[in-house]
Design a protein around this nucleic acid. Structure first.
Length: 490
RNA sequence: GCGCCGCUAGCUCAAUUAGGUAGAGCAACGGACUCUUAAUCCGUAGGUUCAGGGUUCAAUUCCCUGGCGGCGUACCA
């Protein structure tokens, strides 16, 4: 546990401190000014020679014989403190048993050094926690991505920009809440452990509930429960939910991720598109990440690509988009033609792939990477959208859209299917796909059908990938950079 | 899953070309130093080179297997 030379030395220092009567892990310390407070109120604090108390982690020590300069870091900032042996007497020697990484509380007065650096002249200090491991190197920080993800505490200590990313995530979620609350939506929560999973195409994580002696699944979406709330009359609901999908990990996928789902009664997918546009307009105005430069309120530069969010965003039908990038109108094509195009483009077709699924593969490979500016792809084939309502005037399609920005899928929405008899038929055809080998086909949920039978008003519904939106706002290349503890191999 | 790349001191990196006693900076330890800020100066210590196997007189270096990670790709509509 304490194998290295430096760790052994720290353990020894801990023992020495105890022998000298220093409590290495005390209970509390009164902070009268955070480091950020000190910085904003500096002129006043200096002028009035106010006694201030602040606390933080030691990140650098520069000794000069009878004086020591120390950098102290707290949640929002870093400040220099100055210790003089003539002021501290015997305690000055105690400080020599402290290390980079230790937490201390200090009491003193603020002043400016000759080089105009804000500094606390320390009259007294208190050890608040002894750190038993050396921190990574001060200048290069912590680079090793594996350690950064596995030991996020070290990443946060050493790489201040990381903090900004997660503070931006918090602000963004808070702002979405505000936006929805102001429009009369109510926030709810629905089960994560579900006896039947549904609402998306994905394999679930499976668990076992001993008391009931039956298998449960971690939800892959909140959809069916939220629609029950619409049936129950809540009319406008949303949930920020952790969803779990038993699938691969890459720069856009983490097995557990945060999704916003919202449902609005008496609305259709057109209304939802407008909500999404307004929501982003609001976020673009209010959310800025300190480490990401933005030129204007209507644009974001993501990974070097400038993206404009001028409303209304582009709306293109699924088949028009395919036509643009394949040169062929595939709306009435048969499966052999689609298969041929897939093969021409070296798109893998696995067991259980039916027409819609191959079309979707074509779309993802040939169209999606080109969708840089915010784009609503609308009106999807029915067989890959079992929860969406038929397109008015075209029974082969459904009223559904997906939102793409920077080639990344950010959201999925429909005019929700509310005809219980048709929903039953859709589930049945999903069952057939499943029997033919499509393991992601959706599961019959009789409980949900029965709820629909009581009557669900026309409803528009939406799912938004929050982590991916945060990627956009923080210019993060990987979803791992916007999830504090991303999944890694154990 | 597949492909490529990587893994060396607590951290950041050298040394691998063509096999020949594994180095530096920071951090640490001892010493000097009352405005430094990547403090400076003098000195010291610190290594199962990811693991296991193989080739060789000799392996961080070459080969094989495994582990972990990164990037890409596939799967995940």
């Amino acid at each position: 546990m304490f194998d290295t030379e430096q760790e052994k030395i720290r353990i020894k220092k801990l023992k020495l401190l105890k022998e000298k009567g220093v409590i290495p892990y005390p209970y509390k310390f009164k902070v009268t000014y955070t480091i950020q407070d000190i910085q904003t109120k500096a002129p006043e604090l200096i002028a009035k020679k106010k006694s201030i108390q602040s606390a933080g982690r030691i990140t650098a020590i520069r000794g000069h014989g009878k004086t020591i300069f120390v950098d102290l870091q707290d949640r929002y900032g870093k400040i220099q403190i100055y210790l003089q042996s003539k002021l501290l007497g015997d305690k000055y020697e105690i400080f020599k048993l402290l290390d980079i990484g230790d937490f201390i509380g200090v009491k003193g007065e603020l002043f400016e050094t000759h080089t105009k650096e804000l500094t606390i002249l320390v009259q007294d200090f208190t050890l608040l926690s002894k750190s038993l491991h050396p921190l990574p190197e001060k200048w290069h920080g912590l680079q090793d991505k594996e350690i950064r993800y596995r030991k996020r505490h070290l990443d946060l200590i050493m790489n201040p920009d990381v903090k900004n990313v997660f503070l931006t995530k918090v602000k963004l979620i808070k702002e979405i809440r505000n936006f929805l609350d102001n429009r009369g939506f109510i926030e709810v929560d629905t089960p994560i452990l579900q006896p039947v999973y549904g609402g998306a195409f994905a394999e679930p994580f499976k668990s076992h509930y001993k008391a009931l002696d039956r298998d449960f699944y971690l939800r892959i979406s909140d959809e069916l429960y939220l629609k029950k709330l619409i049936i129950g009359g809540l009319d406008k609901v949303y949930e920020f939910g952790k969803d779990f999908r038993n699938e691969g990990i890459d720069r856009l996928h983490n097995p557990e991720f945060t999704q916003l789902e919202l449902y609005q009664a008496y609305a259709d997918y057109e209304d939802i598109m407008q909500i999404v546009e307004q929501l982003f307009k609001n976020l673009l105005t209010k959310i800025t990440c300190p480490t990401v430069k933005r030129e204007g309120k209507n644009e974001i530069t993501y990974q070097g690509i400038k993206i404009k969010f001028k409303i209304p965003w582009q709306r293109t039908t699924f088949f028009d988009a395919l036509k643009k990038y394949t040169g062929k109108d595939l709306k009435n094509s048969d499966i052999s033609e689609i298969t041929r195009i897939a093969e021409e483009n070296e798109i893998l077709i696995l067991k259980g792939y039916h027409r819609g699924k191959i079309l979707n593969s074509l779309f993802e490979t040939l169209v999606q990477p080109n969708l840089i500016e915010p784009t609503f792809i609308i009106d999807y084939p029915k067989d890959i959208s079992p929860l969406a309502k038929e397109k008015r005037g075209d029974p082969s399609l459904v009223e559904r859209f997906e939102l793409f920005v920077a080639g990344i899928e950010l959201g999925n929405a429909f005019s929700e299917l509310n005809d219980p008899l048709e929903q039953l038929e859709r589930f049945k055809s999903q069952q057939e796909f499943r029997n033919k080998g499509d393991l992601d086909a959706q599961i019959m949920d009789k409980d949900f059908i029965e709820a629909l039978e009581f009557g669900m008003p026309p409803t528009g519904g939406l799912g938004l990938g929050i982590d991916r939106i945060v990627m956009l706002f923080t210019d993060s290349h990987s979803i791992r950079d916007v999830i504090l503890f991303p999944q890694l191999r154990t």
